[in-house]
Design a protein around this nucleic acid. Structure first.
Lengths: 221, 221
DNA sequence: CTCCGTCTCCCCCGCCCGGGGGAGGCCCGT
DNA sequence: ACGGGCCTCCCCCGGGCGGGGGAGACGGAG
């Protein structure tokens, strides 16, 4: 059975583009469209799509509110893929915090869009890597990925402390060990870790470390 | 205060070598030596070293037994660094399973030995990366790290299934997600994960994923 | 045939992890 | 003086994780 997708975006052009890209795939079927978040819930109830691909910024109800509403009111809710125009959109992090499963840049290549839909449909909520990887590539390897790493930092808006904590996570330290190393309480470390997870859109520290490697924030070898 | 170390090895030459290397460090002090595992427990009780650097293969009581005995009978036991001659020593995995905190090749460079001692003293039990990294380097990048990855597999003796599970761990999947993907029970996945952790000398899945990246078993980008 | 490794699943258990709140102190910029 | 961001620490809570056992089925090696 194909992956069923509901498109939610206020721009018809974007919906059409997504539909064209997705329908070209044999295993993906677009089962409906909506122009605003306010219309999402009844549609989801009726169509029961596997994935909702939804713009963050919409006139009546934005993607964040719609995400919250979906997860709150619909039993066995679909996977939510948030669509955004801007590289650096706070709304996206809000949406991820609200429970969205992934995000997608509108300017992404078709293959990436398809890939993202398949990923979230499979239940994987890790999506930073793809976009962040391309970010690293675009910066080239001028100074061994540090530029890219800094760019990732900027994008995720990690504070210095959070970045420090992420570095230690990426060395395999537990919260207690990080606390000992930084000479703070474990509760403090937990706060930082939670912040890092939220900002990276990671579900647990393992995913955060994966993002760290994939983005070049930490380098193997 | 310096890191205090107890050396346990049946070869005097090795003990002397370790002593020379370690004593050259201002922050490390060798407080005692023993020629066999059987002598370890009373010595540890008396000297209370931070780290015990111990050969796996010894005439009377081997490093595995000594490790078990230490952890069982000594309250607040020292960190245990297992020393081995062979790259591919089953005994090492046994020792790690028994609770040793790290392992060390006899042919390692002095800097690595010192580093390993400091690491375990700090309470970090992650040690594969360094040796595995050098393994990857030695294989060069003939086919993009796959040779090295295969070598790592061989060294850790991961079964096919375990390797598959590790790959999915390195993509950020939870046990439940891995179970769904492989169409097996979560208990089965837990078994495989535990096996992977033991064989890699990793404490948790995060460390396992780090090893996967550091070894080239999975490649970023 | 018997042994052994692999894959599968089961039990119990403790604990770390992560989510959800909140709160106080600090510095900085307005 | 006030707000806001950051760092720090606190509470409660559930669930996933990992350890330690065991066990059955299968297949290949001896």
């Amino acid at each position: 059975m194909p992956i069923t997708v509901l498109l939610v975006d206020d721009e018809p052009l974007v919906r059409a583009g997504l539909r064209a890209v997705l329908e070209a795939q044999a295993d993906i079927e677009v089962v409906g469209e909506a122009a605003d978040g306010a219309a999402v819930i009844p549609l989801v109830r009726r169509l029961r799509p596997d994935v909702v691909a939804m713009d963050v910024r919409m006139p009546l109800m934005d993607g964040i509110e719609a995400t919250r509403a979906l997860l709150r009111t619909v039993p066995d809710p679909p996977k939510i893929l948030v669509i955004t125009t801007f590289e650096n959109d706070e709304y996206v992090y809000e949406a991820l915090r609200a429970g969205a499963d992934g995000f997608l840049l509108k300017r992404a290549r078709p293959a990436e869009i398809v890939h993202a839909v398949r990923l979230v449909a499979e239940g994987e909520s890790l999506l930073f890597p793809a976009s962040v990887r391309q970010l690293a590539a675009q910066y080239g390897d001028g100074d061994g990925g540090n530029r890219a790493a800094r760019a990732v930092l900027e994008r995720a808006r990690l504070t210095e402390r959070e970045a420090e904590v992420l570095r230690l996570m990426a060395r395999g330290l537990s919260n207690a060990e990080i606390a000992a190393r930084l000479v703070v309480g474990t509760e403090t470390v937990k706060s930082h870790v939670s912040a890092v997870l939220a900002k990276l859109g990671a579900r647990d520290r393992t995913q955060a470390v994966i993002v760290a490697y994939e983005s070049g924030f930490v380098a193997p070898g």
